[in-house]
Amino acid sequence: MREKTLRTVVSFHTTTDALAVETHCAAHGVPGRLIPLPTIISAGCGMCWSAPDEAREAVLAAVRDAGVDAEGVYQMLL
């Protein structure tokens, strides 16, 4: 498996919220990408935004500016 690095991970209530954040991040140069929801966050399916942990503040600002109510924000090795 790949080497794990510290990531900021944001989970969402809906896929539409995830896409809204992805669109906002892409438009504003905020790093990260959509990944499957890690089971450590929640069993089941879904997608979340994963970014290098040093971009945490930029990601949180992007979530806020996109008008999205995040389901959860996590710091983890992925």
Binding site: H13, T16, G44, G46
Partner: peptide, 16 residues
């Protein structure tokens, strides 16, 4: 819905 799969009820949020 592809989200909240272990919930026994439909997610509350629109559009899901």
């Amino acid at each position: 819905t592809g989200v909240q799969s272990y919930s026994e009820t439909q997610p509350e949020q629109y559009p899901t």
